[in-house]
Each structure stands twice: as C-alpha cells, then as structure tokens.
C-alpha cells in the first residue's frame, strides 16, 4: 500500500458517496447513466468473486464489499425506488452498453494470462471497467447543464484512475517482480477517456460557471 493507491481508493469511495448523496438528498438521479452504474455492478461482481476464495487483507475485503454494496444500492435507487426512478432520463441514456459487455467478453477470451473460468471473468472485469464510463460521458453531453454533484462524481472517478496510474509507476519502480500489463494498458485507456471531460470540467470551474460538455 502506498499513498497513491490509498488516495485512489479513497477518491473512488468518495465518488460513490457523492453519487449516493446526490440521489438520496435530492431524491433525483437526473444526469446519471443507469447503464454505466449497471456496468460497474457487473464489473464488481465479476472481479470480486475472489472474495469467496482468496484473502489479501481486511482492507481489501472491506473495500470490495463496500464497492459491491454501493453499486447495487445505486442501481436499486435508479431502477426501483418509487421516487428516484421517475427522475431517470431514460431518453438521454441511449448508449448500447450491451456492445461494451460483449466486446469486453470477446477480448477477455482472446487476451488473458490464464485460460480459466475465474481468470477470464477477472480479465473481463478489467476490460469492462475501462469502458464502463462511456454511457455516462455520452449522457453528460446530452444533458446540457450538469449539476455540481454529478460533475464532481465523474471528476472524482477520473481522479481515482489517474491516482492508480501513479500507484503503478510507484510500485513498478519500488517492487521487484511487479508486472500487470493487461491492467496497465486498460487503465491507461480508461484514464484517457476522461481527458475531454477533465478539460471542460476545469475550464468551467475556472470560469466559475455551470458545467456544460459541448
């Protein structure tokens, strides 16, 4: 555990707190993509299957349970909560996320480090996480004025990915035998997807006006 990894995990956690806060406090999920949230739920389930058979640390296990719980809570609110579900902008959330799932599965079957059931599912979760933000980014473009909490949620998610890259650089330069090419390439692609969003987020923040993605 290094400071970049810890900061990354805490930023990830904070992003989920911000999103849940928005949904619970405003009783609205306006501007939030249910497709992205469902993809994250799939990502966490397929990656954290190892909760059942491998133990790394109490920290890791608790975080995995928290991420799983928050992902399913968010999906529950957006799809089933009697008030919140009516605020979901279905017509703005049109990204074909099934293509992302299918594409990630095909890639995981083709490129993995061990051809076993759990390894392929784990690799699938890495590929799917890399692209899971796409429906949300597309939806932001269509939403017009983006509220603070939604904008901050996406910003924190992007920060978390950036901090993970710093964590990998730190680990690669300090640990022997540390190498995870699939994770690195996917993670760099994932972070790059936020570049456009970051540009407009910082620009609008600098000009002190409401976030709009042109």
């Amino acid at each position: 555990m290094n400071v970049f990894r810890l900061a990354g995990d805490l930023t990830h956690l904070l992003s989920l707190v911000v999103l849940l806060l928005k949904i619970v406090a405003t009783k609205s999920c306006r501007g939030v993509s249910a497709k992205t949230q469902e993809l994250y739920a799939i990502v966490f389930v397929t990656r954290y299957l190892d909760l059942l058979f491998s133990f790394v640390s109490l920290y890791n296990s608790v975080m995995k349970v928290v991420f799983l719980g928050s992902a399913f809570s968010i999906v529950y609110f957006m799809r089933y909560h009697k008030v919140v579900r009516h605020t979901y902008d279905r017509e703005l959330d049109t990204f074909r996320s099934s293509f992302l799932v299918a594409g990630s599965m095909v890639l995981a079957l083709l490129i993995n480090s061990k051809y076993t059931f759990f390894e392929v599912l784990w690799t699938f979760s890495i590929y799917l996480e890399a692209v899971a933000i796409l429906p949300q980014l597309v939806m932001l473009q269509r939403t017009g004025n983006i509220d603070n909490l939604t904008g901050n949620y996406v910003f924190l998610l992007g920060m978390y990915r950036g901090l993970y890259i710093l964590n990998w650089i730190y680990r690669y330069s300090t640990e022997r035998r540390y190498w995870q090419m699939i994770v690195w390439v996917s993670g760099i692609i994932q972070t790059a997807l936020y570049a456009d969003f970051f540009y407009y987020y910082l620009k609008c923040w600098n000009e002190n006006r409401t976030l709009v993605i042109p």
């Binding site: 190892d50 790394v56 640390s57 991420f67 035998r177 190498w179 994770v183």
Partner: peptide, 10 residues
C-alpha cells in the same frame, strides 16, 4: 521473471 499479476489491487 515477473509475476503476471498480484491481484492485490481493487
């Protein structure tokens, strides 16, 4: 020789 991946990250 490198380990493939440690799976100790989230």
């Amino acid at each position: 020789v490198h380990h493939t991946h440690a799976k100790d990250e989230l």
